[in-house]
């Protein structure tokens, strides 16, 4: 899973030394059906955090995708959200169909978590279901007129379609470059780069690294790392953000440089990225 884009929560600068380690695997799996809803919620997170991919964990989490017990006052499904997030980290294809079903859930955050996890699992079978959600935001090949449209997790959908190399969706992705929400624009630029390999889309992200808001710069660092856009290396090293995030972003570039080949000597681009990374340690 080295090159797969990580969730933003994993990119957060908050250091995490694996707290909550007192649970055992058996306990966590059993806790998915505990009478205490808090324990269920925590167990689902824990199984993902520590990447417990045992069959019993996967089965338990898939079952939790249909939980009805844990509801927020607004009708959200907290346990389903955590279960969907966890399943993305466990690399088990059994989760693909149940996660596709989650794309129809009434809870926005369940749909978002499902799209993110489907991206991580990398099975193109989910592409039609993702397209179905994406077109909710479109009228023909333009954005729908009610903007900003926040009805679907467009950011996650676009990122997934890009990672899954769904080249047939290029005309549907393109309008989202104009979405009023910047994060959605970046997700569209990231997907367009992955689908077309045209530098213009990478450059659009590089330009965003000079933007004013730290939160957005952090998101763009993750995007550039995910697409491994080498010409961004210097801009990544120089943008005003935490070094931890820059290092993760540059590691994405580095791995992209060496991923497809087993070089005897490292390519020039890799050495450049290594030198930048060393200077940020």
């Amino acid at each position: 899973m080295n090159s797969s884009p990580q969730k933003f929560e994993d990119l957060s600068p908050t250091d995490d030394n694996g707290d909550g380690g007192s649970l055992t695997v058996e306990q966590a799996i059993a806790n998915l059906e505990s009478a205490d809803l808090g324990l269920r919620f925590y167990a689902a997170w824990w199984l993902g955090r520590f990447r417990i991919s045992e069959p019993a964990a996967v089965t338990g989490l898939i079952k939790a995708l249909e939980d009805e017990a844990d509801r927020t006052p607004e009708g959200g499904y907290p346990l389903r959200r955590n279960a969907a997030r966890a399943l993305g980290k466990l690399s088990d294809r059994q989760a693909v169909s149940p996660l596709i079903a989650c794309l129809d859930c009434s809870d926005f955050y369940v749909r978002e978590a499902a799209a993110q996890s489907l991206e991580m699992l990398g099975d193109p079978v989910c592409i039609p279901a993702l397209i179905k959600l994406l077109v909710v935001g479109l009228q023909g090949e333009q954005l729908c007129s009610q903007q900003p449209d926040l009805s679907q997790p467009y950011e996650a959908i676009l990122e997934a379609l890009g990672t899954l190399r769904a080249t047939e969706v290029i005309p549907l992705v393109k309008p989202f470059l104009e979405h009023p929400i910047e994060l959605v624009q970046y997700a569209a630029a990231r997907a367009m780069y992955q689908l077309t390999q045209e530098p213009a889309y990478g450059e659009r992200l590089v330009k965003a690294l000079a933007g004013e808001r730290l939160q957005l710069r952090r998101a763009v660092l993750a995007d550039l790392g995910a697409i491994g856009y080498l010409p961004a290396a210097d801009a990544i090293a120089q943008t005003l953000a935490e070094n931890s995030l820059k290092l993760i972003s540059l590691k994405g570039l580095l791995e992209h440089q060496v991923n497809h080949i087993t070089p005897i000597t490292l390519p020039e681009g890799a050495i450049k990225v290594i030198n930048l990374m060393d200077s940020l340690l």
Partner: peptide, 19 residues
């Protein structure tokens, strides 16, 4: 387990013991 770390190791090896 990490490709980025392995790549840095390779670079270090080349620096310590040039080709």
């Amino acid at each position: 387990v990490d490709l980025g770390v392995r790549t840095r190791v390779k670079f270090a090896q080349q620096k310590i013991q040039p080709p």
